[in-house]
Simulated assay, not measured.
Amino acid sequence: MSWTKEILNTEKPIIAMCHIRALPGDPGYDHAAGMQWVLQKAREDFLALQEGGVDAVMFSNEFSLPYLTKVKTETVAAMARIIGELMPEIEIPFGVNVLWDPVASMDLAQATGAKFVREIFTGVYASDFGVWDTNCGETIRHQHRIGAKDVKSLFNIVPEAAQYLAHREIESIAKTTVFNCKPDAVCVSGMTAGEATDSNILSRVKQAIPNTLVFANTGVRINTVEEQLGIADGAVVGTTFKQDGDFNKYVELARVKEFMQEVKRIR
Rank of each mutant, 00 (worst) to 15 (best):
W3G: 02
W3P: 01
L8I: 11
N9M: 05
T10Q: 01
E11N: 10
P13R: 07
I15D: 00
A16K: 01
H19P: 04
I20P: 01
L23K: 08
L23Q: 06
G25E: 11
G25F: 10
D26R: 13
D26A: 15
Y29K: 09
H31R: 09
A32Q: 13
A33L: 14
G34R: 04
W37A: 03
K41Y: 01
A42T: 04
D45I: 01
F46Y: 14
F46C: 02
F46D: 02
L49G: 06
L49V: 04
Q50E: 15
E51T: 15
V54L: 04
M58E: 11
F59Q: 03
S60G: 07
F63T: 04
L65C: 05
L68W: 10
L68S: 10
T69G: 04
K70E: 04
K70I: 12
V71F: 05
T73V: 05
T73N: 08
V76F: 04
A77V: 11
A80Y: 08
I82H: 02
G84S: 11
M87N: 09
E91P: 02
E91A: 01
E91L: 01
G95A: 05
G95V: 01
G95I: 03
G95S: 05
L99P: 01
V103N: 07
A104G: 08
D107A: 12
A109G: 09
G113W: 02
V117G: 02
R118F: 01
E119D: 15
I120F: 06
I120K: 14
F121I: 11
Y125L: 00
Y125H: 04
D128T: 03
D128S: 08
V131F: 15
C136Y: 13
E138Q: 14
I140T: 08
H142G: 00
H142V: 01
H144A: 13
G147Q: 09
K149T: 13
K152W: 01
S153A: 14
F155S: 00
V158E: 07
A162M: 13
Q163A: 11
A166V: 15
A166W: 15
H167Q: 11
E169S: 06
I170A: 06
I173T: 12
I173A: 07
A174L: 12
K175S: 12
T176G: 04
T176A: 11
F179A: 10
K182S: 14
D184M: 11
V186R: 11
S189Y: 13
S189A: 10
G194T: 10
E195M: 13
E195P: 00
E195I: 13
E195C: 08
E195N: 13
A196K: 14
S199L: 15
S203P: 05
R204I: 09
R204Y: 07
A208V: 08
I209G: 00
P210G: 08
V214K: 10
F215W: 06
A216E: 12
Q228Y: 08
I231L: 06
G234V: 06
A235L: 07
G238F: 07
T239V: 14
F247A: 06
A254G: 12
R255V: 03
E258V: 06
M260R: 09
Q261S: 14
E262K: 15
V263E: 05
